[in-house]
């Protein structure tokens, strides 16, 4: 099972850990950051929704390879993915996060929270304004978005501090996905059996690698749930600002899930 979890994870990762590590100091230039910040809020939301959807497609492929997942009824496969896909992406983000300068790998380079500033307010283009620094707070159209981005970065930073191996990240992702306490499951007992097997295998791995202290240091599951709720709240707030945009502009899978 341990081999299956690791193999499934590595086969469905867009980037190898070594590659992400090797490139961890390749950051966006200030001009490139400004170009991101000058985008309109809608453009940046569509861009991030696109990247997030790609990551979620990889989570679906990961799930399909996990032992026992495809034996569940399809209703439950959908329930688990709908509830867990974003959480898995957020856990996996620690592999693509440089905790030393608080940047994340996004569209080919590493960038900090400032890269995503346009998500929370309109870009600077066409407004005759200069740098974003010192922008008045009345222009912060989605102020909660900055909190969401900071919270996601904080979460990645706290996971990075645990220095998880690929096997450990793979198990954390598998356990986020195969969670028998998700509401609306039809065959909860079947999911609970798979979850139980995963927990035993994870504990055995941690014992073998003398990393048993990891379990006590993991962030509480409520923190991931809170991030997902924050994302939904911001998406709804964005939708209220751009009522006509959502159906056409976002990837179909993103619309289905959120």
């Amino acid at each position: 099972l341990t081999q299956n979890v690791l193999k499934s994870y590595l086969e469905t990762c867009a980037q190898r850990t070594e590659e992400l590590q090797r490139r961890r100091w390749e950051t966006f230039s200030s001009q490139e950051v400004c170009a991101y910040q000058r985008q309109s809020m809608a453009e940046m939301w569509q861009r991030c929704a696109g990247r997030l959807t790609e990551a979620i497609q990889q989570v679906v492929e990961f799930a399909k390879r996990l032992q026992g997942f495809m034996d569940l009824c399809q209703h439950d496969q959908i329930v688990l993915l709908k509830a867990g896909a974003l959480e898995v992406v957020l856990v996996g983000m620690c592999r693509a996060f440089n905790a030393d300068n608080r940047t994340v790998f996004f569209e080919g380079k590493y960038g900090g929270t400032e890269l995503f500033r346009a998500l929370g307010r309109a870009g600077d283009s066409g407004r005759g304004r200069g740098q974003a620094e010192g922008t008045a707070s009345d222009e912060e159209l989605l102020p909660g978005c900055h909190d969401l981005i900071s919270s996601i970065f904080d979460f990645a930073q706290s996971l990075c501090a645990l220095h998880c191996s690929d096997s450990e990240v793979a198990f954390l992702c598998a356990l986020v996905l195969l969670n028998a306490s998700r509401p609306w499951l039809q065959e909860q007992a079947k999911v609970a059996v798979l979850q139980g097997h995963l927990e035993v295998a994870f504990r055995l791995l941690l014992r073998r690698t003398q990393r048993e202290e990891l379990l006590a240091r993991l962030p509480p599951a409520g923190r991931l749930r809170a991030l997902c709720s924050q994302h939904l709240e911001q998406l709804q707030a964005f939708h209220r600002l751009h009522p006509g945009l959502l159906p056409a502009a976002f990837p179909p899978l993103y619309r289905e899930l959120f």
Partner: peptide, 17 residues
């Protein structure tokens, strides 16, 4: 649920890896 999640349904159907 499958009706409401056609893309997810399709992704899950495509090649049982």
């Amino acid at each position: 649920l499958q009706e409401k999640h056609r893309i997810l349904h399709k992704l899950l159907q495509n090649g049982n890896s």
